[in-house]
């Protein structure tokens, strides 16, 4: 069994002639929490979609559990995906199903559990995200943060080997955020789940991550354990970790000089 559950080698990917990844190498250790951080638009979400084979790279390979995920047959890919969970940024709940039925959906599709057992599992997962009382609500009745917690319950309902979280802390109040941070850590420890977190929230993510990759401009600009990155003297890394507006990565999208454009009436 390879020690890395996910291995990305020389990944190149473009979209609409824009280069998103230009030779990215990432290794995700089995049973560890790996964080992918970087500025907006650096392709963090795209990376998760590439690992899940929702997108196909231009070149390079992504090995999941030793198999090149993009060379699997359709049925083998669907088998592999049963062991993966991806928490989408939007939650992606099925709008025609209640909270309970959303969480029960993967179980109903992939198992032959009787309704009593299925109900217990769904309620346990909803309890874990603090929403057991919302089981009968429809997605339209939930706030954004609640919808994402329901989506998390649905993602973990099959106890996947690989959990990928796309911005799990966005839109959460401080209480929910604390619970989520602990829940992700607990799932990782109890179930030995390999975890990839894509996030902007440096403090929360670094508090639970075992290893961090920083990506920007289509490549990995820094990697290491959170403490090592926080002590790094590399200006690129420091700018992101400490949220400095002026630095190597420009805050402004490339444009003409401000004064020139304002006077150009």
């Amino acid at each position: 069994m390879p020690s890395n559950l996910v291995e990305i080698t020389d990944l190149r990917f473009s979209h609409d002639k824009r280069v998103i990844f230009n030779g990215v190498n990432i290794a995700v250790q089995r049973g560890k929490i790996t964080a992918i951080m970087g500025p907006s638009g650096s392709g963090k979400t795209t990376l998760l979609r590439l690992i899940g084979a929702l997108l196909t790279p231009d070149s390079g390979e992504i090995l999941v559990n030793g198999s090149n995920i993009h060379q699997l047959s359709r049925s083998a890919l669907y088998q592999a995906r049963r062991k993966m969970g991806l928490l989408f940024q939007s939650g992606a709940l099925f709008t025609h199903l209640s909270v309970f039925d959303n969480v029960a959906f993967p179980l109903r599709e992939h198992t032959r559990l009787n309704e009593a057992m299925l109900r217990d599992i769904v309620l346990m997962k909803l309890e874990a995200v603090g929403l057991r009382g919302a089981a009968s609500l429809m997605p339209s009745e939930l706030s954004g943060g609640m919808a994402r917690r329901v989506a998390l319950a649905r993602t973990i309902v099959l106890d996947p080997e690989l959990m990928m979280y796309d911005e799990p802390f966005t839109g959460q109040d401080p209480i929910s955020m604390g619970v989520l941070v602990r829940l992700i850590k607990r799932l990782n420890e109890l179930l030995q789940t390999t975890t990839i977190i894509v996030s902007h929230d440096v403090n929360e993510t670094c508090s639970i991550a075992d290893y961090v990759y920083l990506i920007a401009a289509g490549r990995v600009i820094g990697e290491g354990e959170p403490q090592a990155l926080q002590q790094s003297t590399d200006p690129l890394i420091r700018q992101f970790i400490y949220g400095e507006a002026d630095g190597v990565v420009p805050f402004h999208y490339p444009a003409r000089p401000y004064a020139e454009e304002l006077l150009d009436a």
Partner: peptide, 18 residues
């Protein structure tokens, strides 16, 4: 648009069938 098809795909369920 709301990624429901993609999330189904990621659950190992083919949206074409379901």
């Amino acid at each position: 648009a709301t990624e429901q098809l993609a999330s189904m795909d990621m659950m190992g369920i083919d949206p074409l069938g379901r």
